[in-house]
Amino acid sequence: MDNFQMIVLLLDATMRTSTPLILAALAGMFSERAGTINLALEGMMLGGAFSAACVAYYTNSHWLGLGAAVLTTMGLSLLHGFACITHKGNQVVSGMAINILMSGLTALVGIALFAQGGKTPALDHSARFQPITLPGADAVANVPILGSLYSELISGHNILVYVAFLAVPASWWVLYRTRFGLRLRAVGENPGAVDTAGISVVGMRYKSVLCSGFLVGISGAYLSTAQGASFLSDMTAGKGYIALAAMVFGKWRPFPAMFACILFGFLDAAATRLQGVILPGIGEVPVQLVQALPYILTVILLAGFIGRAVAPKSLGRPYVKER
């Protein structure tokens, strides 16, 4: 039973670590399926986390914090769109600029506001998203295996965790079952087809980056007001890039991307627990290898050694009418 408990705990931690990845990976997917590279996930997530923590601290409301995060990231999305869609600027450069800008700005404003070295003050209970006990969780807690799985693993997370996991089928539905999704995917593959069908390419791309901003805002708020209790400078620590990797790994599709996020989240959760553990036959596992595994796997995938990740065809190309 000890082993079982350990696995449940590990999976429980995986749910928590993969949540921001899932939201950000979906965010990246919305933008990139419409043809705009979104390298700015990292910076947007950071900006969202900071706004959420600040507003939640001042208003004592995690919901207002969430709203602020989403507004911030959607604003940053518009900036990204302004550079990449309106001015046809380089999407990679724009993304990097936003990342660097937000890394500096959040720390700078944080120090100016709170003078705590870039941290925001710890949030009260009420200013954070709290775990939710799902109905019946306590009652079945003692049922072996299934009961404890339900009460320990499924139940007891904050609402944003559930939002993230529900966002996956929702995104799938939007992308594959609605008019908006059809046009969005078409714009990423062949904007000319969309233009000749009488739909605005620029409009569609702006909408897609706004969707992207919306989702990544939630992931930012999750970091500082749900998983953590304050903003720390550079608290995303590469999560935006991992999410990007997961999105590529999931071949720009919602469910595969989610599984990649869970895998990467699991590696993250396992890494901290594997510190100093000696596995029989292998010896001590270098934690760093586990941490680097998401990136290594993504490179191997991109190299085409395990299946081919085919990016949307017009990804990275501003739309210019042919002459």
């Binding site: 900036l79 550079a83 724009s94 600029a97």
Partner: peptide, 10 residues
């Protein structure tokens, strides 16, 4: 960040 944004992306 602003320099990259303005002289690069924009």
């Amino acid at each position: 960040g602003l320099v990259i944004l303005c002289t690069g992306a924009l």
